[in-house]
C-alpha cells in the first residue's frame, strides 16, 4: 500500500484540502459564536458537562488529528503491531487523565 501511495502527490494535496476545509469550518463556527448568531441549543445546552458546540469542535479536531497521524505520519501504512503499540498508550492514558482531573478533582476547588 505504501508503494502505491508513493506514486504521485495527489494524496498529499487531498489531505491538505481536507485539513484546510475543517480548519475553515472551525474558524467560521468560532466567528459565528463570537457574533452570537448560533442557535441557542449549540451554546447553552450541555452534554457531559460541555456545550454541544464544544463537542463539535472536539470531533472536528479529532478528525484532523486522525488524518495527520494516519496519512502524514504514515501510521496507517505501518504494521498493525506498531500501530497499536503507539496508539494504545494514548487511548488509555489520556482519557484516564481526563477522567481523574474532571470527575475526581472537584474537591480541589478549595486548594487552588
Amino acid at each position: 500500500m505504501a508503494q502505491e501511495q508513493n506514486e504521485g502527490n495527489w494524496w498529499i494535496w487531498k489531505v491538505f484540502w481536507i485539513l484546510l476545509v475543517i480548519t475553515g469550518l472551525e474558524v467560521f463556527l468560532g466567528i459565528l459564536k463570537v457574533n452570537e448568531v448560533l442557535p441557542e441549543i449549540l451554546i447553552h445546552d450541555k452534554f457531559l458537562g460541555l456545550e454541544w458546540l464544544t463537542h463539535i469542535f472536539i470531533i472536528l479536531t479529532l478528525i484532523k488529528a486522525a488524518y495527520i497521524v494516519n496519512i502524514f505520519m504514515h501510521l496507517g501504512f505501518e504494521k498493525k503491531s506498531l500501530q497499536w503499540t503507539i496508539l494504545l498508550p494514548a487511548f488509555i492514558l489520556v482519557p484516564y487523565l481526563l477522567f481523574i482531573l474532571f470527575s475526581e478533582a472537584s474537591h480541589a476547588y478549595f486548594m487552588l
Binding site: T23, E26, G30, T54, F57, T61, I68, V69, F72, M73
Partner: peptide, 22 residues
C-alpha cells in the same frame, strides 16, 4: 524528522481548539 514535524503540527491542532476556539 518528518514524524517530529508532523507531531508539532498535530499538537498545534489541539492547542488551537482548546486554547483559542473553545
Amino acid at each position: 524528522v518528518g514524524l517530529y514535524w508532523h507531531f508539532v503540527d498535530l499538537v498545534w491542532v489541539f492547542v488551537f481548539t482548546f486554547f483559542y476556539l473553545v
